[in-house]
Simulated scan of single mutants.
Amino acid sequence: MSKETVRKTKMHHSFGDNMLGVVCYIIFALCALVCIYPFYYIFINTISANDLSARGVILFWPKGIHFQNYISALRIDGLFQAAKISVLRTIIGTVGTVGASAFLGFMFTQDNMWHRKLWYRLVVATMYFNAGIIPWYLTMRNLHLTNNFWGYIFPAVVSPFYIILTKTFVESVPKELQEAAQIDGAGIMKIFFRVMLPVIKPIMATVAIFSAVNQWNSFQDTLLLVTDTKLYPLQFILYQYLNQASSLAGLANTNNSASMAAAVATSQTPTSVRMTVTIIVVIPIILVYPIFQRYFVKGIMIGAVKG
């Protein structure tokens, strides 16, 4: 390739283009800062002197750094059991939702499915019509799903939104793949497991992220269905902490040694309890996102646009 050709292929950027690029980077950096700062603010307050944090003077840099808040929070009764429930409901609920969404999304694209359009419309209709909380609660009670771990799982297995995303993605897959498998004698289940599942991994990862976040953050179902403290998830514990932070701060202090409880800088306050438990609850789900991020972007774009 000659120097003249290389010169022509290079894009010329004017001064205005460069300035526009700089402005865009500044705007993006500010937007990123706005998104990151709340997490940073909460974190630095959890490791700063609690008396300063309670007065709201910790804004940009931690002062009087200590980690007693996390030690005290981990000593509060029920926290590890709540973490276990949250992890179990997130894993089992996500697997169930992804599996059901993948299978139903695939089946709703099959022309030979009995009354396919009717069933699909009935599923979509549930997005717009809701009987309300009281009929839902009565149904759950009649199904013996109150004070039952499976009450967290079964209502979320079939989600119209995830089914629509998966169905749209499946429709973007060339039909020749299924036709070739049918010619080789594969049945509908074999086509689903052997042909479609490896192809629709991006949308499954997208559904997995949505479902995992919803399961991890959910606590309204606990308010309505659960009175057994052994079934409380972390988010419900956080909800209680936000409402009872003063008493919980005293509980955490009594679990510390006398010398630590006497120290003003490390003794628990309502603010320190709220922020510490918030970090404990939020960090795990934040760490999950980077694992699925590359699938998430591809899946959500194809699932939302192609159709």
Score class of each variant (00 low, 15 high):
Ser2Trp: 10
Glu4Ser: 13
Thr5Ala: 14
His12Met: 11
His13Lys: 14
Gly16His: 09
Val22Trp: 15
Ile27Pro: 13
Phe28Cys: 14
Ala29His: 10
Ala32Cys: 02
Cys35Lys: 00
Pro38Phe: 10
Tyr40His: 06
Tyr41His: 13
Ile44Asn: 04
Ser48Asp: 11
Ala49Cys: 10
Pro62Asn: 05
Pro62Asp: 09
Gly64Ile: 05
Leu74Asn: 12
Ala82Glu: 14
Ala83Ile: 09
Ile85Asn: 11
Ser86Ile: 07
Arg89Tyr: 03
Arg89Cys: 04
Arg89Met: 11
Thr90Gly: 09
Ile92Arg: 01
Gly96Tyr: 01
Ser101Leu: 02
Leu104Glu: 03
Gly105Lys: 02
Arg116Ser: 09
Lys117Ile: 13
Tyr120Lys: 12
Val123Arg: 04
Met127Cys: 00
Phe129Ile: 09
Trp136Arg: 05
Met140Tyr: 06
Met140Gly: 03
Asn142Thr: 07
Leu145Gln: 02
Asn147Asp: 00
Trp150Phe: 07
Pro155Gln: 06
Ala156Trp: 09
Phe169Asp: 06
Lys175Asp: 03
Glu176Met: 14
Leu177Glu: 15
Glu179Cys: 01
Ala180Lys: 02
Ile183Asp: 10
Asp184Glu: 14
Ala186Glu: 08
Ala186Lys: 11
Gly187Phe: 00
Ile188Val: 14
Ile191Asn: 06
Ile191Cys: 06
Val195Asn: 03
Val199Lys: 11
Pro202Asn: 02
Ile203Val: 03
Met204Ser: 04
Ala205Arg: 08
Ala208Trp: 11
Val213Asn: 07
Gln215Ile: 09
Trp216Arg: 02
Phe219Ile: 06
Leu225Ala: 06
Thr227Trp: 07
Asp228Pro: 03
Asp228Val: 10
Lys230Met: 14
Tyr232Trp: 13
Tyr232Lys: 06
Leu234Gln: 07
Leu238Gly: 01
Leu238Ala: 10
Leu242Phe: 01
Ala245Ile: 06
Ala249Tyr: 05
Leu251Pro: 08
Ala252Ile: 08
Met260Trp: 07
Met260Cys: 10
Thr266Pro: 14
Pro270Val: 02
Thr271Ala: 11
Tyr289Arg: 12
Tyr289His: 11
Pro290Trp: 08
Gln293Trp: 03
Phe296Met: 08
Gly299Thr: 11
Met301Arg: 14
Gly303Leu: 08
Val305Arg: 08
